[in-house]
């Protein structure tokens, strides 16, 4: 159920990327896709009544294995968030330069390549 909602969010982002013609909207579509995948990864690792994966007392390490949430998706998401920031800054700078060249954010008006 919850995973399905994540997937709906992903498809909404996909719709924004494929169908919108404003460059900023396309960028927002990519952001939505990124959020949905990140959330999906974290939710995959969740355990009912799960702990944060931090060793609090040394005696309870075996306890941690049975009750902690999965730490590996968290590491993946941490990396993918920073990656998203790098891509976003590049995308936005290309969008700003395109605006300077064409005077619009409309992607259908940028068709010099076709000629």
């Amino acid at each position: 159920m919850i995973y399905t909602l994540c997937f709906i969010l992903f498809v909404i982002g996909l719709y924004g990327v494929v169908c919108k013609k404003n460059i900023v909207k396309i960028i927002l579509g990519f952001l939505i896709m990124e959020y949905s995948i990140n959330l999906f990864l974290i939710l995959l690792g969740w355990r009912k009544q799960g702990f944060v994966p931090v060793v609090e007392n040394l005696a309870g390490v075996e306890n941690l294995v049975a009750q902690s949430v999965d730490p590996l998706p968290q590491a993946m998401v941490l990396i993918s968030i920073i990656l998203g920031l790098g891509i976003l800054s590049l995308m936005v700078s290309i969008a700003i330069r395109l605006y300077q060249r064409y005077g619009t954010f409309d992607i259908t008006e940028m068709n010099k390549l076709k000629n």
């Binding site: 799960g50 949430v69 968030i81 920031l85 976003l88 700003i96």
Partner: peptide, 24 residues
């Protein structure tokens, strides 16, 4: 869901994202 480190990172990156997008 038990990922406080990620939550704080996401918050900081989110602010930066909004700043960059508003700049655009």
């Amino acid at each position: 869901v038990g990922a406080p480190d990620i939550a704080s990172t996401q918050l900081v990156v989110e602010v930066l994202t909004i700043v960059i997008l508003i700049r655009a």
